[in-house]
């Protein structure tokens, strides 16, 4: 793509803002040391989780913590939306400049509409965040906004209070079944396998009744 160089220029700066805003989340995942592992075969050291994994038609609004499943902290979501807003504004301007090169393939009236739309899209984004809860019953345009679920790194890493299946298998655990549900006694911690996203993860759990 011939515009790749200019695209990288326009996204690099806001990408730093973006990365900074989610640095906490990255730290939680960072212990996988994906880069240090290098290209070990069979997915070793590479994360298979990311925003594109969901195949969703809507963008995620905030990363979801594995623990507690689906419960999003309101403050985190607003902060993240704010940082993403800056990113989108700058990126939109980057794309705006590039679009001039494609003038001959776009109809005449569309450029004016695009400028107009970029301006009130930003306003609408803030407005939409505010009224989303009210709109929930009327129309939820993010219902298929699947977050990364239990973001797992191929390797021993912990997200929230859950660990990957690979990390779990390195532990020495005894399985107990209580009321038809399986629990794992791994010494000082109890884990429970649970389905989240597309994978089984092992979440830290209180000891089952009777233990």
């Amino acid at each position: 793509m011939k515009n790749r160089a200019s695209l990288q220029v326009f996204t690099f700066g806001p990408a730093i803002l973006f990365i900074g805003a989610v640095s906490l989340d990255v730290d939680a995942r960072g212990r996988g040391d994906a880069g240090a592992r290098g290209m070990a075969g069979g997915g070793g050291g590479f994360s298979a989780a990311g925003p594109a994994r969901g195949g969703s038609f809507s963008a995620r609004s905030a990363p979801r913590a594995a623990a507690g499943g689906g419960a999003m902290d309101q403050a985190d979501r607003s902060d993240r939306a704010g940082s993403r807003q800056d990113f989108r504004t700058d990126a939109a301007q980057g794309r705006q400049d590039m679009r001039g090169e494609r003038q001959d393939t776009v109809s005449d009236g569309r450029d004016d509409r695009q400028d107009h739309r970029d301006e009130y899209r930003d306003d609408r984004q803030d407005y939409r965040e505010d009224v989303r809860d009210d709109r929930q019953d009327y129309y939820d345009d993010r219902w298929d906004n699947w977050g990364t679920g239990a973001a797992v790194v191929a390797g021993a890493a912990i997200v929230g209070s859950a660990i990957t299946a690979a990390a779990y298998y390195d532990l020495d655990c005894t399985t107990v079944v209580v009321d038809g549900i399986s629990y794992s006694d791994c010494g000082d911690t109890w884990y429970q396998p649970a389905y989240s996203g597309g994978d089984v993860t092992y979440v830290v759990i209180d000891a089952p009744p009777g233990y």
């Binding site: 499943g69 989240s196 979440v203």
Partner: peptide, 8 residues
């Protein structure tokens, strides 16, 4: 049988 994480 295991639970859905969201249901814990």
């Amino acid at each position: 049988r295991i639970p859905f994480l969201a249901e814990i």
